[in-house]
Design a protein around this nucleic acid. Structure first.
Length: 966
RNA sequence: GCGGGGGUGCCCGAGCCUGGCCAAAGGGGCCGGACUUAAGAUCCGGUGCCGCAGGGCUUCGCGGGUUCAAAUCCCGUCCCCCGCACCA
């Protein structure tokens, strides 16, 4: 039988919408019975694919589950359109970029006539919002659509809400203005995000400390700023390095109201001009001009000579390097090289003896090394000259790492401190004294922008930040987190780390869709920053939407005062009246909004994929604790993993994407939902495999057929049940318990395993065990099972569950039906143990037949353990040691008859730690299952005969009867 | 570099917190059987090694330790994945 999933799905989706099944009424239930769950709204630059499906299905399943548990559930949805990508797409469509057109026409299947409208970003937004909503409806998501909205100034009421949020943060001093470094295209003049970079998108930005050595020339004070990543080594400088062939400049460097004269490489002058310095080049010359001159170390006061070195790269930092041969392999080797080049020295008019006089200065105590680690390491790796670049780099890396992590500084005033600490201290101190500055530089080159230009690092001013570095704020965020439930709990550590590391976050930019910063409208609030507390907006959104529809809303009148009242203040009739006048919204409606917010908040659950932990989810915590009162702080976060397609990462540019809607079209929403929920747990990733989905589809069809069949049965109360019937009901209880527990913890995979597979397998076993039976007891069991099973499956496969619920004559929607609870009288651990015993027995006999290679067995003799052995087990379980168990047992004269055997048995039991054995009536269990066992094994089963066939009888142990096969 | 998370049988993946019932759930694949004219679907069995009686042996990245007992705890080590921001 083919099940027409599509027809069933459409039918119920229509009914749900018509009867407003998922629009909660806050007056229906007390606040203790409310359940508010949200999921990160989708960014709509295209269709949702199956990789996204899990993120949205989880909260829906939980919402459905909670609804059935009797909660008043709010599960809203909105759309995120803030940011640059959509604008970028529009631009690329306009430019007829073939790649973009391919994606939108062929992968997303946008009709041609609509595609060209995409030159306007608003059209993109319009199209995909509609598509996403349709997808969600067709996925069967139990969303309250009355609260739908989207972000940016295209939806003014929400924009006003964001404005309010930012004013509030600003007043608290949490939005600050400052400088910020960005990757920058110097030709086009724009900041470069990751996707704006053609080459080198993952290159790190390093913070060089540039230490200004002093060169006195004709009484003029000139600085020679040496760039280093190890400022602490300034105490060990023996000389300076310049590249004699590189071009250097003498330039006036202005920063603020300070002006100095520097000598740096030509490249450095250019790069520094983007980093808060005004550079005026006075003179250009080759590095050789300065070789042999002396400069003064600004920290130690030492006079050191400038020497030539070809390893100095003028395009790295300042092109000026200080030499610390004791701890830097490059410096050591360069000095060794130079000693051999007398001619070169003479050319620069340097007395070779100067080199001989250079004494290495040891700064760092490092275990496993002597005074000069750099020298040792270079030797160890067999470095011969500066040209052994690879080896030298390795040596440098080794030494740097070792000294940084394990080194102890030897020079006062930092003596005895770990290098790691000293480095920070010195860098800070030197900067404070004006001896050193910071220069940003790429760790590798080249870094090319998508415009094809060599990128630089620029310091931008007037940038607005949200100051997540604020220690007080961090404290509150930590407090909130500590009181939250995180699923999976193992992610908590990451949240803690993120809260610790988070610092100033640029919150506005000059391009893209969004809400303008209310006090500085040139800036648009950036997309991660405008969606941190919108869960609060949902609570009043339906009123806003209604007012809007009725044309009774002037968004401009949604002032700070209005939002303050709703979200941050106490109830006040007076205030409501006042606001009614100011906003034009009826006082009752304002009151209603306030009540609704107070009812739904705090948010019970926030769901999202795990990639949002380092940003959105943590911002969500931060912004909540800043703006809302403690009682409104969020209660839980559940994160989930991503999806791949047949083992491959989904990539729209490569075309291997399966759109969510296409998957639904192909398999039906219920199958897709069940598949995705059963595939992975919590934050682990899942892999979509077409073949498996197909298989599942058939199983779901089977489920449908089974329940359809059982629906005709009558559950007549009071019929006498056989052991196997009770077993089935007991197992059903377990499935209820297992599913419920798993769903409470967002463990969808375990839940599906219980709700679907375990029940299916148990049912299979039950049918096998009861084959040929057709009696009232069996019908009773199957009918009960159907009732329970449909409800257990309803969160996962809501459409066919509705259909089946209707067939079963259930009242109303299964979506609102009561979630099953274990039936107390169904519990029967004994019958389960007996059934397991029977199963194990069959397995054992099969094993014997197999191993002993018995052909055509005809009879199986089974001997269950005698009573006294059970007694021994019980006593051992209680006493747990040989002496007292033996003593206890020997009190009984019946037992004494078996004294010797008992002593052996006790020893064995203690050795095996067999302390937990559930007592069952083995003989009864075997007799009840006799027919079945005989059929399974195709033998005659003889239970506990007098005659000891094969002399096996004495082997009988509790739960392990003696067996003889003939 | 800093931070977070992992390494389990042919593959995916549970178990690890709270050591024992773990040769290790559940899928998938593969092999065999039943059903069928056949294919498919479905059902049953097998899938570390050895074993003519239900047993034994060796396994959970690698090395060591704790324990009567370790996939699970501790120490060391190797390898892998992810994030590092103005970007959704």
């Amino acid at each position: 039988m083919k099940v027409d999933f599509k027809a069933i799905e459409e039918k119920w989706q229509k009914r749900w919408l018509e009867e407003r099944v998922f629009e909660p009424d806050r007056n229906a239930k007390p606040k203790e019975k409310k359940f508010y769950i949200t999921v990160a709204f989708p960014y709509l630059s295209g269709h949702l694919h199956v990789g996204h499906a899990r993120t949205y299905t989880i909260p829906d399943v939980i919402a459905r589950f909670k609804r059935m548990q009797g909660y008043n559930v709010l599960f809203p949805m909105a759309w995120h359109i803030t940011g640059a990508p959509i604008v970028g797409i529009a631009e690329r469509i306009k430019n007829r970029d073939p790649k973009t057109i391919h994606i939108y026409r062929d992968v997303y299947k946008v009709p041609e006539d609509i595609l060209w409208k995409f030159e306007d970003p608003k059209e993109i937004v319009k199209y995909f919002m509609k598509a996403a909503k349709e997808t969600f409806i067709r996925a069967g998501f139990s969303v309250d659509w009355t609260r739908e909205f989207h972000t940016t100034s295209l939806f003014p009421p929400f924009s006003k809400f964001v404005e309010w949020q930012f004013w509030t943060l600003k007043d608290m001093g949490l939005v600050v203005k400052g400088a910020h470094r960005v990757r920058w295209d110097p030709v086009v003049g724009t900041p470069l995000g990751d996707h704006d970079i053609m080459e080198g998108e993952d290159v790190q930005i390093l913070e060089y400390v540039i230490i200004k050595f002093i060169l006195e020339e004709n009484g003029e004070k000139i600085y020679l700023p040496a760039a280093t990543l190890r400022p602490e080594t300034v105490y060990g400088v023996t000389n300076m390095w310049l590249n004699p062939n590189a071009t250097y400049v003498k330039a006036k460097v202005r920063r603020g109201d300070r002006e100095e004269t520097w000598i740096i490489s030509k490249e450095a002058a250019y790069k520094l001009s983007f980093q808060d310095r005004e550079i005026e080049v006075i003179e250009e010359f080759k590095g050789e001009k300065l070789i042999g001159k002396y400069v003064k170390n600004p920290v130690t006061g030492d006079e050191v000579i400038i020497l030539p070195a070809e390893f100095v790269d003028p395009d790295n930092a300042t092109g000026v390097v200080m030499s610390v041969p004791a701890h830097a392999p490059f410096d050591h080797i360069a000095l060794e090289d130079l000693k051999k080049e007398t001619e070169l020295l003479l050319k620069f008019d340097i007395d070779p003896r100067v080199l001989e006089d250079i004494t290495y200065i040891s700064l760092i105590e490092l275990e496993g090394y002597g005074e000069f680690p750099a020298v040792e390491e270079a030797e160890k790796l067999g470095v011969k000259s500066q040209r052994d670049k690879e080896k030298l780099e390795e040596a440098t890396k080794n030494i740097y790492k070792a000294e940084y992590h394990k080194g102890i500084f030897k020079i006062e005033p930092y003596k005895g401190k770990p290098v790691q600490e000293v480095k920070e201290l010195i860098a800070k101190e030197l900067q404070e004294k004006g001896i050193a500055e910071i220069m940003y530089e790429f760790a590798e080159k080249p870094v090319i922008s998508r415009f094809g230009n060599q990128a630089v690092i620029k310091i931008i001013h007037d940038q607005w930040f949200i100051d997540y570095g604020n220690p007080e704020w961090k404290g509150k965020a930590r407090e909130a987190l500590a009181n939250m439930t995180i699923y999976p709990e193992s992610r908590r550590a990451q949240f803690e780390a993120v809260i610790d590391w988070l610092d100033k976050k640029a919150c506005a930019r000059k391009v893209g869709l969004g809400t303008p910063l209310p006090w500085d409208p040139e800036w648009v609030i950036e997309s991660l920053s405008d969606s941190t507390i919108y869960m609060a907006y949902y609570t009043i959104s339906r009123h806003i939407n209604k007012l809007r529809e009725e044309g009774r809303l002037d968004p401009e009148k949604l002032t700070r005062e209005f939002f303050d009242y709703i979200f941050r203040e106490d109830f006040s009739e007076e205030k409501e009246k006042e606001l009614a006048e100011k906003t034009g919204i009826p006082a009752e409606t304002i009151h209603d909004m306030k009540e609704e917010f107070e009812y739904w908040y705090p948010l019970d659950w926030r769901c999202s994929a795990k990639d949002l932990i380092p940003n959105h989810l943590t911002f969500f915590i931060f912004n909540h604790v800043a703006i809302f009162r403690r009682e409104h702080w969020p209660k839980g976060i559940a994160v989930n993993g991503f999806g791949t397609l047949e083992g491959q990462k989904m990539s729209k540019s490569k075309g291997n994407v399966l759109n969510f809607i296409d998957a639904i079209e192909e398999n039906g929403a219920d199958v897709v939902r069940l598949y995705i929920m059963g595939l992975a747990e919590h934050d682990s990733d899942f892999d979509w495999r077409r073949k498996e989905v197909g298989k599942l589809r058939r199983q779901v069809e089977r489920f449908y057929e089974l329940i359809s069949e059982f629906s005709s049965y009558e559950a007549k109360e009071g019929v006498e049940l056989k052991a196997i019937d009770r077993w089935m009901l007991h197992r059903l209880n377990k499935a209820i318990e297992g599913t419920t527990k798993a769903l409470e913890e967002f463990r969808t995979r375990t839940a599906v395993q219980w709700a679907f597979y375990t029940v299916l397998n148990d049912l299979r076993w039950y049918m096998r065990r009861t084959e040929g039976r057709d009696d009232e007891a069996k019908r009773f069991v199957l009918r009960k099972l159907a009732d329970v099973w449909v409800r257990l499956m309803a969160p996962f496969t809501p459409h066919i569950s509705e259909e089946l619920w209707e067939k079963l004559g259930g009242e109303g929607f299964v979506s609102l039906a009561k979630w099953p609870e274990p039936v107390p009288e169904w519990w029967d651990e004994t019958v389960e143990a007996e059934e397991e015993f029977v199963k194990a027995f069959i397995e054992d006999v099969k094993e014997i037949i197999r191993v002993a290679k018995i052909e055509n067995p005809s009879r199986v003799y089974v001997y269950t353990a005698p009573e006294w052995k059970w007694r021994v087990i019980e006593v051992v379980a209680e006493k747990r040691d040989f002496k007292s168990a033996m003593a206890e047992l020997m009190k009984d004269p019946e037992m004494r008859k078996h004294g010797k055997e008992i002593s052996k048995l006790i020893q064995r039991l203690i050795k095996e730690r067999a302390f937990e054995v559930k007592r069952i009536d083995e003989e009864k269990a075997l007799r009840e299952a006799k027919d079945f066992i005989e059929k399974e094994l195709s033998v005659e089963l003889i239970i506990n005969p007098e005659e000891d066939r094969g002399g096996k009888k004495k082997q009988a142990m509790p739960l392990k009867p003696a067996v003889f096969v003939e």
